[in-house]
Structures are given as C-alpha cells and as structure tokens.
Nucleic acid binder design. Structure first.
Length: 702
RNA sequence: GCGCCAGUAGCUCAGUUGGCAGAGCAGCUGAUUCUUAAUCAGCGGGUCGUAGGUUCGAGUCCUAUCUGGCGUACCA
C-alpha cells in the first residue's frame, strides 16, 4: 500500500534522509573524508580515448537505460558525462547506484575515457565511490534557478546551476589577480589599512556608524582607504595599493552597494599626468590579458580600449553637449538660469551650489554619451577636497576620472601635499557640513599632523572594482558581481535597538504608570518559557526573576503582574543565542509578535544594555536588570548551604557574598547594585529577593 | 523616500467572469545496454508570501503587511 511508500510523505528531503539512513545501516560511509583525483573535470575533458582517469564531482543529470546509466558530473570548471555499465561495475554496485545516488550527490569515479556513439567524451566507469549526500533536490534541470532573489540569497545554488555565474566569479578573481600582478611588477606594495576608523574621511559619503564597546566611543566603517594610504606615503612607502572593502550608508540600487571593493594606489613623485599615462597602460594590460583583445562588447555598445584615450575637461564636455560655458559663471543663479533656458531638467536645481550644479549638468548632458574610455579633467575644487589645486586655475584641481560606458570607473588626482591648504579645505568642508551637506568631510587632525611631517608629491588613484567587473561582464546589477550581496532577512528586518526602545525618552514615573497591561498573560508567558527555554537552570532563573520582580513591584507600588511577566520572559532566547552580548534581540522580537507592551519589550532589551549598546532609562528597566542579576547570587548562596535549601539562607549572607568576587563569578555585582536606582538598599533588596525566591522554592528545587 | 510590477508543488510556470488548485521537470513503482532536457506506463506531492475583510463560496475582489525586481532622487 501507499502507506509504506516513502514518496507518499510528500517530502523529497525525507526520501533522501531515508537513503542516507540505509547507507549508514549497511555500513557505507555517506560522508567520507577524502578522494584522490588524478584530474579535475576540466583536465579530464582534455584526455584522449583510452586514457584512464579518477575524478569527482556533483551529479547533475542521470539517465537510466536499464543495464546502462549515463550521468553528468560537474565541478566549478567543467562537466563530463560518465557511463555506468552493469556488466562493468558489477550487478551489486550498479543496482546500488540506481537506488542510492540522487541528482545533487557527490561521487568519485574511476575509469577509461571513450567516445559514445554520438561522439560525446565520456568516462566508462570501472569503479565509483559515493562522496556526499545532498538532502535537497536541485533546481529544475532545464530552466535551472532563475529567481534572482534566490540567486543572491543562495548563491551556492546559483553557482551550481548557472554556468555564467561560475564564469563571472572566476573572471572577477582573475581580474583581481591580474591587477595585483601588474601593480606588483611595477614596484607597488600591497598593504592593509583599518576598516574601523574614528573619522570617516577620504570621500564624500555617509558612513556606517558603530559603537566601540571597550573604548565606549563612536566608530565608523571606512568609506575610503585614502587618508591612511597617504599616511603611508608620509611614512616612506613610495608606491602602495590596497584592495579595500569600503562601506557607505547610502541608497541601494543596481549600481550602488553598501559594501563594496575599491582598489586604491598611490605613487610618490607622480602627478596626475603620470597617472593618466600609467592608467592607460594598466587598463589596457588588464583588458588584453583577460580578453585577448582591446575591443569588447557591453550591452548594445562596443567599447574600444585601443589607441590613445582622449582627454576632455568638464568645461569642454559641457560646452560641447549643452552649449553652456561653465567658466562664464561665478554664481549658481545665472548658471541655473542658463540651464533652465536650454530646457535641461535637473532635480531641485535651485538648491545646488555652483560646483554641484556643474556636476549635475555633466551627469545629465555628457556622461551617458561617453562610451569609449575618456579621461575627464578639470574638476571644480569644491568637489575635490583632497586634490591638488591647479597652478594656473585655482578653481579647478589636477584631477581626472576615467569614464567608460557612461560610468566613472577611475577617480584620481595629484594629491594635495600642502598641509596649510589641506587644513583650509577641511575648514571649508566643515562649513559645508554645518550648512547641511552631510557628505562633506569632517576635519581630520590626525591626518593633518601626518601631512605636516612632510608628504612627497604624489598621485593617487581609485577604482570601483565591482563596477569594473560589472562593466566587463556586462552585468546589469552590481549584486550580480558580488558573491553574497546584503539582503534583508526573510520575515522582516529587525529594527535597530534604539528604534525598538520607542518612548524610552519619557521620564521614569510617566513611563511606568502607563503599564497596566503587559500585553500578554502570565499563562502565555509561562507557555513561551517552556517553548523557548529547554535548560533547567535557565528555567529556574526565569521563574526566580519573575518572583523577585513581583515582590519588587509590590514594594514599589507598581503592577506586580506585569513585572512578574517581564521576569519570566526576559531570557527567552538565551538558550538559543548563547551569547551574552547578543541575546535579548530575539526575545524582543518574540514579545513584539505576541503584542507585549513596548515598555516591557524595552525593559527586556535594556537588561542587556551593556551588550547591545543601549541605555537603561525607566525604573522598570533598572528593576528587571537588578532582579534578574540577584537571582543567581541568591541561588548560589543556597547551594553552599549544607542542605542546599533556600530556607537556610539569610539575607545577610547574600550581602556578604556580594563582596567575594570569586563566588558566583558570572553574577555582575554592578547590575545587582542597580537596585539603588529604584530606591532600595542592597540589604533590603537582598532580603526582598530572598523572600520572593523562598516563596517558590519548590518550583526552583532549592 | 516615492511610483509601478511580481510572489501558486523542491524548480520553471499556467490558473478564464469569484465556482472541485493544474502542467512539465524533480521524487516514488516498473520497462529499457549509447542516452543528450532520453523515452514509455503508473503513483504521490499545495498554509496559493503573511494577516485581516467582502461573499453562500476567494489563488482570483478589498485593506494592511513582508520579500524581491524595475524606474526615480542622493552617493562610486
């Protein structure tokens, strides 16, 4: 009957688990530790009929013809057909393969290369070894995985199923190694500079802000490696480069990632002219090495990297494409009028200063037309706070961008090495910041000091690697060239803790008086406790915290039901998360879903204020923290009694134990002392806590 | 942020005016010693993104919400 048929369970994974169990039962190791290959699959494909081979891969297709089975096995580099003949591998082994091996499993095969009747290169398997079980069916063999979201979230599936994905990422790796080789061969030294920084400088962008716990200070993820690499120029590294992961907290779209890779290099004694020459050599080398030609297709365009690349200034380009000569304008208003007069539309045009206006105008009228490589020069000084000012024209900088297919691929300039000028530029930026430009750079004194020790003339260079890869692989979205792009978690992103603590700014009394309903019942709290908490110790800790909270609420004239519930549920996720610092986030999520009162959720979060970088604000917050903390101390005190009973414990001995640091070391004494924040002395609090725990001593087993 | 679109079996997709939720691949049982998305016969498989609502009846209509795409604005 169908009841005995595993397939009726509607679970392909269950079928595979059953096969796995069968393998174990019969003594076959389904997950062996190694297999020795003579060739990878790509190498096997180059063999001649008659050659023998041992290779391994993932089974992608299987066609059973009765006493003959064809299958395809695949690795990152290639796939090859294998052929199992019953008469060659033996009846037992042949039958076993048919029963046990699924599409997606790994197998090692040994045999002789031959051509099938239709001419396909195939391994005639003499012997095989099962190498690993796949518990999930792979995506459909013909269409493969096309859901773009799945490709990003489960890149490994994308890599298994899609040949171009494999090629694209191999290309990216090869590109980076080619760049590295060229730079190394030209006397550059690869270095690593800090990602966590105290000042976000080196570019105009909004940083990710984080908190450094042990220094208790704001820290930033770097937006660019620039100022550190230039410190190295000061330090005597004449040619340095870094493949730098950078982070910018800005919009997410097909051409912007929050976490991206920039290559920057700096060479002492070069100006931007030297750099232009080097750039052309560098990029041509890379294209030649990777494509074997200097003309490549990109979408509808063919990009020609051959020949001498043209140079044009902002002014020339804009004049050519719009008829506006930006040199004629001293202020924003007349330029704005000129732009409007020509019917060119720029968003919030009236709010832009002259530099931003120039930039926007260029992006609108010129940038999309630039397909073949072009060096764009003559950038306004306001847009280039770290670039050297031009000796002839103080309004522009010695800077260039390499534009390819409408994208700014490279940005480079003669570096500003005059510390006095640099200081002034920082001050200008600071002013712009005050005026509301939140991308303007902050003052960076430490960098200025480095400059004041003397920086040789030099020119620096930066390239967005992801964009370059995207350009060269004709990828529409930058996330296609990053292995694991950032995605919102399925089921909703967790709000930042600060947002979670809504209303926490309210004064203590006010916040507390509002809580007359926890939002969940005591019964539900206990249910949640047994669902989420498996450990006995944690369960007792939760119940004890509830009891102490209840007693404290009665003492302070607060709502005992609500406070008890807070104690019961405060550590729901601790068993799962197993991380002092990170726990409570999941608990808060559970409670929110249950409809718990926001103040309760906040108190729960705040009991781990240290770990999460939060602040305790309300009486409720402090109460939960100190109650939860003292339970451990009281329980530990009970355990050293001869009868290990709470009944034998005196409040005085609990207080004494506070001072012995080695006793119950995990209990944070500072948190227990927070009882003073709610107006109780340690003595009174210890007595209250002890009494509360004694009242439920049976439940606690103490 | 805003606007438009999408989410149905493990995968790729149908689903009419609101009327019993479908196909192919994958899986299971069997046939098959040269297949190429093998083929043939049979079987099983669903929280229609989630939560509400309208209705005798909702995959379909309404509201909210989640996830994603594309466009738009700012940044590389």
């Amino acid at each position: 009957m169908t009841q005995n048929n595993p397939s009726s369970k509607n679970d392909q994974r269950a079928v595979r688990l059953e096969k796995l169990q069968k393998m174990r039962d019969e003594g076959t190791q389904p997950f062996p530790d190694r297999y020795e290959c003579t060739h990878d699959i790509k190498a096997a494909c180059d063999l001649k009929p008659g050659d023998t081979v041992r290779t391994a891969g993932r089974i992608m297709l299987s066609r059973n013809m009765g006493k003959l089975t064809f299958a395809h096995i695949q690795d990152l580099g290639a796939k090859i057909q294998v052929c199992l003949q019953r008469d060659l591998v033996g009846a037992e082994a042949y039958k076993w393969f048919g029963k046990m091996a699924d599409i997606g499993d790994f197998v090692g095969v040994e045999g002789e290369i031959f051509h099938t009747k239709t001419g396909e290169l195939t391994i005639r398997v003499k012997d095989y070894i099962f190498l690993s079980k796949s518990l999930h069916p792979l995506p459909e063999k013909w269409h493969g995985l096309v859901d773009i979201e799945a490709c990003w979230r489960q890149r490994y599936l994308d890599l298994i199923m899609n040949d171009e994905t494999r090629k694209r990422f191999l290309f990216r790796s090869k590109l980076i190694s080619t760049m590295r080789r060229f730079l190394d061969d030209n006397g550059f030294v690869e270095v690593e500079t800090p990602i966590i920084q105290t000042k976000p400088s080196g570019a105009r962008a909004r940083p990710f802000i984080t908190h450094h716990n042990s220094l208790d200070m704001v820290a930033y993820l770097r937006i660019a490696p620039e100022t550190y690499l230039k410190r190295l120029i000061v330090g005597g590294f004449n040619r340095v480069y870094e493949f730098a992961r950078c982070f910018r907290n800005e919009g997410m779209d097909p051409s912007h990632l929050q976490d991206f890779t920039m290559l920057e290099y700096y060479s002492a004694y070069w100006n931007y002219e030297d750099n232009i020459a080097f750039t052309q050599k560098f990029v041509k080398y890379i294209i030649g090495e990777l494509f074997g030609t200097l003309k490549i297709r990109c979408g509808e365009n063919e990009i020609n990297f051959d020949g001498e690349w043209p140079r044009m200034s902002f002014r020339e380009l804009i004049l050519r494409d719009s008829g506006i000569d930006i040199a004629e304008f001293e202020a924003a208003e007349p330029m704005c009028a000129a732009i409007k007069a020509r019917g060119i539309e720029i968003e919030s045009i009236d709010e832009l200063n002259i530099a931003a206006l120039t930039d926007q105008l260029y992006k609108k009228v010129s940038q999309p037309k630039l397909i073949d490589p072009l060096f764009l020069t003559g950038h306004p000084i306001e847009l280039s706070p770290l670039a050297r000012c031009n000796d002839e024209n103080a309004k522009i900088t010695d800077r260039f961008q390499l534009v390819i297919n409408g994208w700014e691929v490279v940005n480079a300039y003669s570096e500003l090495i005059d510390p006095i000028d640099q200081c002034r530029r920082f001050e200008d930026q600071a002013r712009m910041k005050e005026e509301g430009d939140d991308e303007a750079m902050p003052m960076d004194e430490d960098y200025l000091t480095a400059m004041e020790y003397g920086m040789p003339p030099n020119s620096g260079w930066g390239m967005g690697i992801d964009r370059f890869v995207s350009l060269l692989t004709d990828s529409a979205n930058l996330r296609d060239v990053v292995l694991f792009p950032l995605m919102k978690p399925v089921g909703g992103a967790k709000p930042a803790p600060k947002q979670a603590a809504t209303g926490s700014g309210a004064p203590k009394a006010e916040a507390d008086e509002k809580i007359d309903d926890a939002g969940i019942t005591r019964e539900r709290a206990l249910e949640l406790l047994s669902q989420n908490v498996t450990g006995k110790v944690l369960r007792c800790h939760s119940l004890a915290s509830g009891a102490v909270m209840k007693a404290l609420a009665e003492r302070l004239g607060r709502n005992p039901q609500v406070w008890e519930i807070a104690g019961i549920v405060h550590d729901l996720d601790f068993d799962r998360v197993q991380d002092e610092d990170r726990h409570t986030l999941e608990t808060a999520e559970i409670l929110r879903k249950e409809g718990a009162h926001p103040a309760l959720v906040q108190a729960v979060l705040a009991h781990n204020a240290e770990g999460l970088g939060l602040e305790r604000k309300t009486e409720f917050d402090f109460a939960l923290t100190c109650c939860e903390s003292i339970t451990g101390l009281i329980a530990a005190t009970a355990l050293i009694m001869p009868d290990k009973k709470l009944a034998s414990v005196k409040a005085k001995s609990v207080v004494k134990r506070m001072k012995k640091k080695d006793f119950a070391r995990k209990v944070n004494r500072d948190l227990v002392l927070l009882c003073e924040e709610v107006g109780l002395s340690l003595e009174e609090f210890a007595a209250l806590g002890l009494k509360a725990m004694q009242s439920i001593s049976d439940d606690l087993g103490l």
